[in-house]
Amino acid sequence: MIGNAPVVGRPRPRNRTSRHQRHYRNPTDAWLLWIFFGWLGLHRYYLGDWKRGIAMTLTLGGLGLWSLLDGFFLTRRLRRINSGRL
Score class of each variant (00 low, 15 high):
residue 1 M to N: 12
residue 2 I to E: 05
residue 2 I to R: 09
residue 2 I to F: 06
residue 2 I to S: 07
residue 3 G to I: 11
residue 3 G to W: 03
residue 4 N to S: 08
residue 4 N to L: 14
residue 4 N to V: 12
residue 4 N to W: 15
residue 5 A to M: 13
residue 5 A to Q: 06
residue 5 A to S: 05
residue 5 A to V: 14
residue 7 V to K: 01
residue 7 V to W: 01
residue 8 V to D: 04
residue 9 G to T: 00
residue 9 G to S: 09
residue 10 R to H: 12
residue 10 R to C: 04
residue 11 P to R: 01
residue 11 P to S: 06
residue 12 R to G: 05
residue 12 R to K: 11
residue 12 R to L: 13
residue 13 P to Y: 12
residue 13 P to C: 02
residue 14 R to A: 06
residue 15 N to L: 08
residue 15 N to P: 02
residue 16 R to I: 12
residue 16 R to Y: 10
residue 17 T to S: 13
residue 19 R to Q: 05
residue 20 H to A: 14
residue 20 H to P: 04
residue 21 Q to D: 13
residue 21 Q to M: 08
residue 22 R to V: 09
residue 23 H to K: 12
residue 23 H to W: 06
residue 24 Y to V: 08
residue 24 Y to M: 06
residue 25 R to D: 09
residue 25 R to N: 01
residue 26 N to P: 01
residue 26 N to R: 14
residue 27 P to C: 07
residue 28 T to V: 14
residue 29 D to Y: 15
residue 30 A to C: 09
residue 32 L to W: 15
residue 34 W to R: 01
residue 34 W to A: 01
residue 34 W to N: 03
residue 34 W to Y: 13
residue 35 I to E: 02
residue 37 F to D: 06
residue 37 F to H: 11
residue 39 W to Q: 01
residue 39 W to G: 00
residue 39 W to Y: 07
residue 41 G to T: 15
residue 42 L to K: 11
residue 44 R to Q: 03
residue 44 R to G: 06
residue 45 Y to R: 00
residue 47 L to T: 09
residue 49 D to A: 12
residue 49 D to K: 04
residue 49 D to G: 08
residue 51 K to C: 08
residue 51 K to W: 15
residue 52 R to I: 07
residue 53 G to H: 03
residue 53 G to R: 07
residue 53 G to I: 05
residue 53 G to M: 11
residue 54 I to L: 14
residue 54 I to D: 08
residue 54 I to E: 09
residue 55 A to D: 09
residue 56 M to W: 12
residue 56 M to A: 09
residue 56 M to L: 08
residue 56 M to R: 02
residue 56 M to G: 05
residue 57 T to R: 00
residue 58 L to W: 03
residue 59 T to Q: 11
residue 60 L to I: 14
residue 60 L to Q: 14
residue 61 G to H: 09
residue 61 G to V: 03
residue 61 G to A: 00
residue 62 G to D: 02
residue 63 L to A: 01
residue 63 L to C: 05
residue 63 L to T: 14
residue 64 G to L: 07
residue 64 G to V: 09
residue 67 S to G: 11
residue 68 L to P: 00
residue 69 L to M: 02
residue 69 L to T: 10
residue 70 D to C: 00
residue 70 D to Y: 07
residue 70 D to F: 15
residue 71 G to R: 10
residue 72 F to M: 07
residue 72 F to S: 04
residue 72 F to V: 00
residue 72 F to K: 05
residue 72 F to I: 07
residue 72 F to A: 01
residue 72 F to D: 00
residue 73 F to L: 04
residue 73 F to N: 06
residue 74 L to T: 07
residue 74 L to W: 12
residue 77 R to E: 15
residue 78 L to P: 03
residue 79 R to E: 13
residue 81 I to T: 07
residue 81 I to L: 04
residue 81 I to N: 02
residue 82 N to M: 10
residue 83 S to C: 01
residue 83 S to F: 11
residue 84 G to R: 05
residue 85 R to S: 07
residue 86 L to H: 12
residue 86 L to F: 05
residue 86 L to E: 13
